[in-house]
Amino acid sequence: MTIRVVVWGENVHEQENEVVRKIYPEGMHTTIAKGLDEDPVIEVSTATLQEPEHGLTEKRLAETDVLIWWGHKAHGEVSDAVVERVAKRVWEGMGLIVLHSGHFSKIFKRLMGTPCSLKWREAGELERVWVINRNHQIAQGLSDYFEIEQTEMYGEPFTVPEPQETVFVTWYEGGEVFRSGLTWQRGGGKIFYFSPGHETYPIYYNADVKQVLKNAAKWAYNPAPAWVGIEKAPNTPADQAPNGPLTIKGETLHKRGEEGFH
């Protein structure tokens, strides 16, 4: 089994901010990809905002099993057409892992249908990530908790839909708590949100964080064929009903063969 993963990175802070550039000289997307590449099951590549179609052409997405998304400063620069293209692939069965400030990305908000807002503070405080679902595939290989020495605080309330599963809950040095690892299902696709990853700290070099992302890629992988046409609303004519052909009774809104309203 090979899981084809694309790590999508905004790649803006690395170009504009010297602190971020020193921590991630090859770009955050490359560092994340290198961590995933440690697992022989994962075949990883990268894409960035600056590439044509943000590196996410229809062909590329059709050949992607799991997409990992990191964004922060340039959410508004992401093409709406690409967002809809990614959403369609998730509905069809592609896995999606959204990292850190990706909670405010167009694609995450599109799939959640909520504000996805939260509280935050950038103070370099300690983060303790508690594993509250020990048997979950994403938590395999971890202890009861792991710590990140310096991080940005994300605090509740986190205005997302009730998750299917809560895998991690974080405590911060300042006292706040946050649901830092959550899962959902949208159509055929699995979604995992994981909050650690602020760009001014070397979080994606952390061994436990890398383990979470490897586990999450395997969890989000869906080996089933793409659910092609999931977004369509086809008409089933009366003469093609399972117990048909049926006799049409009463008046109809649509003429035979008419596409209908969507």
Rank of each mutant, 00 (worst) to 15 (best):
T236Y: 10
G141T: 13
E10F: 11
E147A: 06
G93N: 10
S117T: 15
L118P: 06
G95T: 01
W219M: 05
G113V: 11
V212F: 02
E16H: 13
A74G: 05
A33R: 01
I203P: 02
V86C: 00
G250E: 04
I248W: 05
K255S: 05
A241D: 13
Q50T: 11
W184C: 01
P157C: 07
Q15W: 01
G27N: 08
W130Q: 09
A81S: 14
A47H: 00
R256P: 03
G181T: 15
Q164Y: 03
Y24D: 07
I42E: 01
V129D: 05
N135V: 14
E173T: 07
W130I: 07
P163S: 07
I191D: 00
Q240F: 06
R186K: 10
E173L: 06
E152L: 15
L111T: 00
F158D: 03
L182G: 03
D239W: 13
E125N: 10
A207Y: 10
E231N: 15
D239M: 06
T159D: 02
V177P: 08
H198G: 03
G187L: 08
I107G: 01
P202Q: 02
Y24M: 09
E10G: 13
T48A: 04
K232C: 14
Q164A: 04
P242T: 10
E10L: 09
W70T: 01
R85M: 04
A241V: 08
G71K: 02
F108E: 00
P225N: 13
R134F: 09
I248V: 14
M153P: 07
G55C: 06
K218N: 05
E77N: 14
V12F: 15
E251R: 13
G27Q: 07
Q164G: 07
V12C: 14
G55N: 09
L49P: 09
P237Y: 09
R21P: 06
D239Y: 15
A123N: 11
L126E: 11
A241K: 14
N235M: 11
E125K: 10
E10C: 13
I42F: 09
S195E: 04
T2V: 01
Y172H: 06
Q150H: 15
F178I: 06
H103R: 07
G250I: 01
G174R: 14
M94K: 02
Q15H: 05
E53M: 14
L49T: 06
Q50H: 14
A217K: 02
A33M: 01
F158R: 08
